[in-house]
Design a protein around this nucleic acid. Structure first.
Lengths: 345, 345
DNA sequence: CTGAAAGCGCTTACAG
DNA sequence: CTGAAAGCGCTTACAG
């Protein structure tokens, strides 16, 4: 067992092949100018020496070529939606020989700032970011400095920027419409953090469905605080305690849905017999819930792929106008919303 | 809006402060030899110029100091257990100013190889890896070359290496013991991929519990194929089709558990009235299942933290003997295993 | 077609 | 206490 790391560099290969390091570099980069004979000798030397290019040196040197590194800023790696997005990005990246550095900032702007600094000084090709909110200073700054940036899930309010996100409004619309068509007339909406643009779009969809079907909106049953589990539990409890309890709840993301389920189970209420549930965000365990959850599926993988494609376009054309990619959602109808509202069976 | 990226380097700061780049570097690295007056001038220049060190250059230059980059090889980023591990690692890493590059190889050895190559040539400080199986050639090689490597969840069979993992055997033992104490006599075990050491350890625990309580083991109800959802469904179906159906199922990981639930729900069987379920891996949505799932909780966060601590130790003491850290599991008793076996109510 | 040399942004002996 | 210089492993004009 060797304990010292062997350092096979261009130099090693060059001396092995009896050429200069410049020539080896040319062969590695597929420069057609190299004589076939030389190329062959070099390729052989590369093989026998087990040479692998040092990406750090390449990145330091590369001013005008790709640095093969993408920075990713994720608000919450525990959220399966973002895991899908990451997978979409990663697949594409590694297909192109790029690596991905992930900063999971847990919705903490300070942590976000730290990660941005780190990624920046790793001189990544560009950033894919879910801004902590619509007025995210750090992301603004990043763009200001001339970095390639693509936003996912949410854009920035004061600046036009490449964005890839779900059609939140239509997704919410379909969810609520589905409940209305089943006969529900009082549908609560547990929303996410009001500071996040996504939250507002989903509320819009909820409103639009009510309007389209001539249903009055009761602001008292639209409640939001944070986007997390705890809020889901607390807000659902409030809703369930209401004198004229809604017959259905539409939750704005998977954590809120879990919170809602917890609160409903704790009350011993039957789903959908006593209360129907539809959630935003489909998750792989949604079918294993009892009853299986009706949910608005976001295509996270596709969002990730589109984001990284857009990022590479942005790198090549820094001046092109910002694109706004809206990815369709899909309503996965399962048993948690039943076939008719409670009390009518 | 500037479109060109500003390149504030040591040079910029040096000329601003009227010193050489060597001096700036010394100030940055806290070299006490620098005169206070000079230090102050340099610090001021750093502030006003908005200088941030280039980590790429630092890493290229750093032969003997930390490169501030950790490589992570994860078999499946969709598995919440690994997400916890990642969070544990990440927290520690970023507290120490290190970044983490994640390679999610989806149990695909080819992808694993590619990622190892990339991470290696990014000259990371070290690797934290969950080997694809006990005879993982690529991980072997990595160690062979003198890299700092810590394994998580599973070790290597032919080589002693730093490992951090759950106490799988005891965890499984407690799960099965719990079922036995509830009166179950026929307990099926849906195992993971037999090539993964973890699988075997969990089987051992299952066996040990049977032995301790003088229960016969029926190999016909211990079944394993892959570690995924599909296998969970298929194997559970097989088990449920058996003439003398077991009264309980112990599943070896969270995906298998989901598969089992799917199969059980499809048959319309009541949990735990007709069949009890205990799963390895607690997940944050386990309490939202109906009924809530009894599960063996692994402390993923702690595993991640211990792993990265061990890694830094390994970097500092390349020759120290490999450590084997076993992290306790915890049985989370919920309603999916009931209070007595089916048929005795 | 190939090589010598400059340089990417740093750190670190070596002088002084 | 500070600076000039070498060098980490590459790429790329520039000569020849």
């Amino acid at each position: 067992m060797k304990t010292a790391k062997n350092v096979v560099s261009l130099k090693t290969v060059a001396s092995l092949a009896g050429v200069s390091i410049a020539t080896v570099s040319r062969v590695l980069n597929g420069d057609p100018v190299v004589k076939d004979e030389t190329r062959l000798a070099v390729q052989k030397a590369i093989k026998t020496s087990g040479y692998h290019p040092n990406r750090v040196a390449q990145r330091l040197r590369a001013t005008h070529r790709s640095k093969k590194l993408i920075g990713l800023l994720i608000p919450d790696i525990q959220n399966p939606f973002y895991v899908d997005v990451i997978r979409g990005i990663e697949e594409y990246a590694y297909d192109h020989g790029s690596a991905v550095v992930i900063g999971n900032f847990s919705q903490d702007p300070k942590k976000e700032k730290l990660y941005i600094d780190i990624l920046r000084s790793e001189s990544v090709d560009g950033f894919i970011v879910a801004p902590s909110d619509g007025r995210d200073q750090h992301v603004e700054e990043l763009i200001q400095e001339g970095n390639a940036v693509v936003c996912i899930d949410r854009g920035l309010t004061n600046r036009s920027v490449d964005v890839v996100k779900s059609d939140n409004e239509t997704g919410a619309f379909h969810a609520v419409e589905h409940l209305i068509k089943l006969g529900h007339r009082r549908i609560a909406h547990i929303t996410g953090d009001p500071a996040i643009p996504t939250t507002r779009e989903r509320i819009s969809g909820y409103m639009a469905a009510h309007q389209q079907y001539g249903l009055p909106v009761d602001n008292n049953i639209i409640r939001g605080r944070q986007s997390d589990f705890i809020s889901g539990v607390a807000l659902t409890r409030e809703i369930l305690d209401l004198p004229d309890r809604p017959t259905a709840i539409f939750t704005a993301n998977n954590l809120l849905t879990l919170g809602a389920l917890e609160a409903i189970h704790a009350r011993g209420l039957k789903i959908p017999a006593e209360i129907a549930v539809v959630g935003f965000d489909d998750v792989y365990w949604a079918t294993s819930l009892n009853p299986p959850l009706t949910a608005v599926r976001q295509h996270g993988l596709e969002i990730g792929q589109r984001a990284i494609e857009l990022l590479y376009q942005r790198i090549q054309h820094p001046a092109r106008l910002p694109a706004n990619v809206i990815v369709k959602t899909e309503l996965m109808v399962r048993r948690s919303c039943g076939s008719r509202p409670p009390g009518e069976e």
